[in-house]
Design a protein around this nucleic acid. Structure first.
Lengths: 216, 216, 216, 216
DNA sequence: CATGAATGAGTGTTCATTCAT
DNA sequence: GATGAATGAACACTCATTCAT
């Protein structure tokens, strides 16, 4: 009830205009927070920088988030929510085609995204401090992703296109080159750039070599 | 001879005893530094903690390293030097056996090592701040590792055991599941433990499925 | 108009009230800084002491001055600005009177001032580290002072009251006893106090003896 | 008695050789101390630098001086002892000649000496912290110097060469330009160099103008 | 609501002093 | 005696957090 009744006794109307502005401002702070946290990591990130980046005063941050830690959590959570919806789409057609489509999305929307790379770095760097965040990430992204891979595989096996494979147990084996590519980008950035087109193509071939039944 | 006789005629005795102790001290500080940096990352690491962990006074650290940054660099460099010598061993025998051996070492000595995982986390987390360090890592570890993989593949292809594969261009495809396992450990630690025995076994089967010529 | 309207449309109010307080704060810090630097010298001065003396928290100092050095520079500069305006006044009348007036001001406003003595000590002590500061002091105080002396002398010579003197070349000769008195105060403080009234009187007589034409 | 009997019960002979070396080393430390203290002041001086400059280990300093403060005191005292003996010589001849000689020595041996300037700076800078040191300086240097000046003046007056002057009461008036010259050197060092030859010449003329009886 | 000046606990670093060798 | 490695108290400076305006 707190806050619903103003000091003057009038019913406080959140004023949709205001409400909107508030959300907008919160979003701006979250964006700014992401940029700063991604650039420097949790400890090295300065609230001052977040505020400047967001175009608000330092104190304003504290109107929206209790402290630095809550800001960080909110930033990471906000990132999870938007991501990877695209992949959730269902696949139809031959298993080989599905696989191609899956990889295409994986590289196109995940590996290539600088934002995703930044998120991954952040999670790896700060995961120890904030295990719940990686938990969210696992639940929302990793598990569904593995489920999708497993789905394609079982479908391919059922249709006779693929032979039985240990990858059903460990869908990670299929996704691993994508993960490596992200880590590679994060670690070697500009200096040893991976040719992602060729790499993803090789990845697909490699998978099909492994999965397809001998067509003798 | 330089330095043996001081300007004042005093015999300068580096005193092998002292010298030894100094190296030992330095090693202790590096170890302590690794633990603290690995646990908290560069920024959040406290020199105080490193000192306590090493069993020396805070000031002592600065007798061995100019500042926190130099300590960190030294820590990371010291880790690179010791690692991964084992893998450099040469392989003889059938390509399939080589591959099995390679994976066995990869999982046994790298993926399973908590220390390696900590190093990887550290490099990913702080690589942006210290690009030279990841560069060293690339030169000393990644590049030789990729060369070893490529060697096994070309040998297998030459002997007719393996068919041609895009993995010769991108040896990363072979190693990727190992990298993923490390990242997995780093991210999900205890909570979603990967059964490494089964995983590595699946990895090997998956690779052989992909690489071996159809034996009809 | 710059800055009145912020990017977000918020009216930025420098708030004259705030502005004023800020200047007042700054002045307080400068005063405190002077006392502490004067008492201990640059190196031995503690920012903590300056803060306590100024009645603010340590961090506040750094809102107004980048670091200890900038604070010190600002302190010294602030001292130069206020000083010695009085002397700049123009003199009328007989040269002998002018001289008496000049000395009177010199002793009354400069030599007697504990603050001036402190400044001189500070400049002598720290001049090596901050040459620009003594440069300012030379430009703003010394050079004008010498000009004033020279003016009195040439006027006296022109009017036939004084004979030609080497002091026109070196006005320092006239001011020297004042400088000595300051150094004396700084060095011997309480212990061998100089009777400034008698001393300045002797100084005047000595000068007139030297400058006046023999009246046979 | 302490130290006279060695542990072995033999009478300990200080061994003149050793004794000598010890004094020599002490002297070297004092010299080094002076250079470092003169260059940086008491607080900013580093014992480390003194040791390096003296060519001994840091710990050795503490074999000769209890702590930094005692070292500083010893340095300053050692400087006083050697100085200004020359001036103590007695003067014979006409008062005007005596004065010329006095000034010649003052400028030649005091004002021109970089070492003296450094000492003066040191005394002014640190006198507040070490009043006893300036006291020594006053007793050993200033007072005798003033006595010498007074002597010349009274002799000149007695011989009828000089008329009565307030400078007998305040011999500082005679020496002041020398003090100013030192302060000038200390403050303006290279940037506004004083032509000491012309300056001292002007000083002499100025004094004689003031002191000599009208020779009409 | 928003601001940004103020706070002060906390950190990296220095350096006088000690002491085992 | 001489050394220089080790110590730890002390200090400049930072930055998350608060709060008067």
């Amino acid at each position: 009830m707190k806050g619903l009744i103003s000091r003057r006794g009038k019913v406080s109307k959140p004023s949709p205009r205001r409400q909107e502005q508030k959300l907008h401002r919160q979003a701006e702070i979250l964006n700014a927070g992401f940029e700063v946290f991604a650039a420097h990591g949790y400890e090295a990130a300065r609230i001052d920088d977040v505020a400047r980046q967001a175009g608000v005063a330092k104190g304003t941050i504290y109107l929206y988030f209790r402290d630095k830690e809550q800001l960080f959590r909110a930033v990471v959570r906000s990132l999870v929510q938007k991501r990877f919806d695209a992949i959730a789409g269902d696949f139809e057609g031959k298993a080989g085609e599905l696989l191609r489509e899956l990889l295409s999305r994986m590289y196109g929307q995940i590996v290539r995204s600088d934002k995703v790379c930044a998120i991954v770095r952040l999670l790896i760097a700060e995961g120890g401090r904030f295990p719940q965040l990686t938990e969210i990430y696992h639940r929302e992204i990793i598990a569904p992703g593995m489920k999708a891979i497993r789905h394609v595989l079982t479908q391919g096996i059922a249709s006779g296109e693929f032979h039985k494979t240990a990858a059903v147990e460990f869908p990670q084996l299929l996704a691993a080159p994508g993960v490596l590519a992200i880590v590679w980008k994060v670690l070697h950035g500009q200096r040893h750039r991976l040719d992602l087109d060729a790499y993803s193509q090789a990845h697909l071939e490699f998978l099909l070599d492994s999965l397809r039944k001998q067509t003798v």
